[in-house]
Simulated scan of single mutants.
Amino acid sequence: MLKLNRVHHIAIICSDYQKSKQFYVEVLGLKIVREVYREQRQSYKLDLEVGNLYQIELFSFPEPPPRPSRPESTGLRHLAFEVDELDEAVTHIVSFGVEVEPIRVDEFTGKRFTFFADPDGLPLELYER
């Protein structure tokens, strides 16, 4: 039987590498693990650490097609980050000019959450612990 231990990484392709790098590092506060430019693919690859446990790989490629987002389409729906204090996290993100949806409550867990988007419109969620 297959035994999966945990999610190893999440890969995201961006349209404007510098803008997305700034968003994920400065706005979301992710730590840079490694950054490389792959000449043969004309692509940057930025490894970002999430909470000492997970990793996001941020890629740039020449002229990637846009991601269908609204209406929701088949595939990865969104990426959610757990936070200790949702109001504090929202205040931080909004201070960078990022639009955040109104806070909602999960009807099954009673936990608070909200959505916002990265520079390419990828839906991101903050979910309070």
Rank of each mutant, 00 (worst) to 15 (best):
E88V: 10
R129P: 00
I93V: 13
D106N: 15
I32Y: 03
A11L: 06
R67E: 09
G110V: 07
L58G: 14
G29F: 03
L79N: 09
R34D: 15
Y54R: 06
R129G: 03
N5V: 07
R67M: 13
V90L: 02
Y127P: 06
V90N: 02
Y24M: 06
R34V: 06
D87M: 07
P64E: 09
E39H: 11
K19E: 10
K31R: 14
E101F: 01
L28W: 04
T114E: 04
E82D: 13
H78W: 01
P119S: 05
F81K: 09
H92M: 03
F61Y: 14
P62M: 06
L79R: 04
M1W: 00
I12V: 14
E57P: 04
F115M: 04
S95P: 04
R77K: 11
K45T: 14
K19G: 02
L58V: 08
K3V: 11
A117I: 00
E99N: 09
L48T: 12
G29T: 09
A117W: 00
E85Y: 10
R41D: 15
E99G: 02
F59P: 07
E82H: 05
V25N: 10
V27Y: 02
F96C: 05
G75K: 09
G51K: 09
Y54M: 05
V94K: 05
R41G: 02
L122K: 04
G29H: 10
Q22H: 12
R6D: 11
H8I: 04
S73M: 09
Q40I: 12
Y44I: 03
P62Y: 04
D120Q: 04
S15V: 01
P64F: 02
P68L: 09
Q55V: 14
V50L: 07
E107Q: 10
D106G: 05
M1R: 04
T91I: 07
I10N: 10
T74N: 09
I103L: 02
L76F: 11
A117D: 04
K31C: 04
E49C: 08
P65M: 05
L76W: 01
F59C: 06
D47Q: 13
E26H: 05
Q40G: 04
E101Y: 01
R70L: 06
P119I: 03
F59L: 15
F61R: 15
S60Q: 10
V100W: 00
L4C: 08
R104I: 00
V98H: 01
L2V: 12
I13C: 14
